[in-house]
Design a protein around this nucleic acid. Sequence first.
DNA 1: GTGGTCTAGACCACC
DNA 2: GTGGTCTAGACCACG
Lengths: 122, 122, 122, 122
Amino acid sequence: MILTLDFASDIPIYQQIRNAVVRAIADGQLQPGERLPTVRALAQEAGINSMTVNKAYQLLKQEGYITTDGRNGAAVGSGPGRAAAASARRQKLEEELKLIVAEAKVNGISLGELEQMIGKLY
Amino acid sequence: MILTLDFASDIPIYQQIRNAVVRAIADGQLQPGERLPTVRALAQEAGINSMTVNKAYQLLKQEGYITTDGRNGAAVGSGPGRAAAASARRQKLEEELKLIVAEAKVNGISLGELEQMIGKLY
Amino acid sequence: MILTLDFASDIPIYQQIRNAVVRAIADGQLQPGERLPTVRALAQEAGINSMTVNKAYQLLKQEGYITTDGRNGAAVGSGPGRAAAASARRQKLEEELKLIVAEAKVNGISLGELEQMIGKLY
Amino acid sequence: MILTLDFASDIPIYQQIRNAVVRAIADGQLQPGERLPTVRALAQEAGINSMTVNKAYQLLKQEGYITTDGRNGAAVGSGPGRAAAASARRQKLEEELKLIVAEAKVNGISLGELEQMIGKLY
DNA sequence: GTGGTCTAGACCACC
DNA sequence: GTGGTCTAGACCACG
């Protein structure tokens, strides 16, 4: 898994890790059931403290994206169970989109262009 | 300009102000060239520290959305100034969209649904 | 005895086994004096390490729910043995109830609703 | 706020703090809107690390019991917003009750006694 | 002066 | 060998 961290960013490192994992799942780079690197391994690889990685994994677990297990490490969730909080997630997503759309509008990006960008990314 | 602040939110107050201004510009509530409330006026109206409002205005200026002038206060930037910063904003915007799209994908939201949400918001 | 384990749960496997046995005794599925599966049999059936089952049995024995005998394996405790530990259990149970009731109260669940839930479960 | 920690318990300290706060809210010892001790103050008073208190506060915040705010510290939530996850909470509560009821049954506690205990605690 | 983040290093429960 | 917890002490963003 590719993980590039920006230590100067105002986005916390654990959040950046969380985002990278979510993107990797969406991309298919991480398949459902597949195991993630161990906390220690990822920490060493990224040159950060293991507690920071731990925090990211706990966040992902809480959001339902992964499951953690003392014996087998962390693994990508298998879909069901994630559906539970889907409606709350959808609302949060729409809230985020609202700002994105406003910014696009102000910067002269047409609806068509926006849809094109999304189509490319999806 | 309507400004509703959520003091319990994780989003800093100055960021909320910045977002509200961007949205107001996108909505057309704030027209290019139009003057914004003075720092002090907005601070008093919202019941917050004027340093916070100042920080929001500086951020908006740095992003190219507004211009400030010691004598006349702040005003919404008109065409050229905004266009200059637009390309940098476009790249950052695409970066943000990447995460949104990934989250939507993982949460089972189809491309069609996503486009529909955007169409409604635009 | 039906034993469904959730390997993704935060509750340790040995605790899940312990809980399942207690529930089975409460339901009457396991009668006083009745023998439990051997450690090895249960371990193989559930696909887990026998050390884990052993730990669960030792916990149940310590709590006074079952008795173990090198020759005959484990069996559900009958009257007297269970009664001895009951008073200690009663106190611990009240402690657990205290938290449950507090959470119910804060979450707007009335006393009547709570009693109804218990009546249904008993 | 009375806070007694059991360092020998297998319940994590941050969880014990979380439970104490929930109980204090239910008891009315902590009123909606009332401020909690600062992270540092509580840590020093209890003789533990501030990160542990921080973890407890974040858990309480995530569960909707309190709000945190860099300028004013942590405060008890004002009810609305907590109602959001009520149905999920209710289900979790029923799950916990299921085990409690089973244990009560096995230990010879009648339904009447159980209801009496709850009535006293509520 | 508040909560939030991060570090370096330790110990523990689980299996 | 895994994740989970805790410590002691530091720095930062926010207002």
